[in-house]
Amino acid sequence: MKFVCNECGEVMAFEDNTPSEDGSSMNILYRCPNCERSISMVTNAGETQMVRSLDVNIGHESLETRASQPMSLIRDALAGAEPAQTPAGPEPVWTEAALKRLSAAPSFVQGMVHRIYSDFARQKGYAEITPAIMSEARDELGMMGM
């Protein structure tokens, strides 16, 4: 699926994917690279569920992200799933600001997001997770909208 700017004839570029607070919809933002006009595609509950059950991520910038998170669908969607073995290294400390940013994510993805950022910090040798580290992880792992 593509969106074309009627004014410019340009294919609009993906910019962000923000889940709603209750997780039932996604607000997917596209912007025209030429004239900066933007549109938002808002999914309904059925569409949101279908996309999530496909284990795809709207806005992934890198297909490598999934490869770095084996069994991510099972680990994140299976109720009662036991925590995976984590990379070596001490548990990074979350700063208050980082926790506040984490709390903005829908509750059903917070566990997954917490794990991904924690794994990222360990792999990088960071002792604490700050909003800046979260932004770095987001850029490197292509986690748009988190």
């Binding site: 569920q49 999530r52 059950s53």
Partner: peptide, 29 residues
């Protein structure tokens, strides 16, 4: 038991995504 967390929306819609979720769990394994 195997019980999938609801991926958002109405719990009554589970039939919409459960089959897809389980097919993708097999794919993942």
């Amino acid at each position: 038991p195997v019980h999938w967390q609801h991926p958002g929306g109405l719990a009554a819609d589970a039939h919409v995504w459960r089959g897809s979720m389980e097919a993708n769990a097999l794919l993942e394994m």
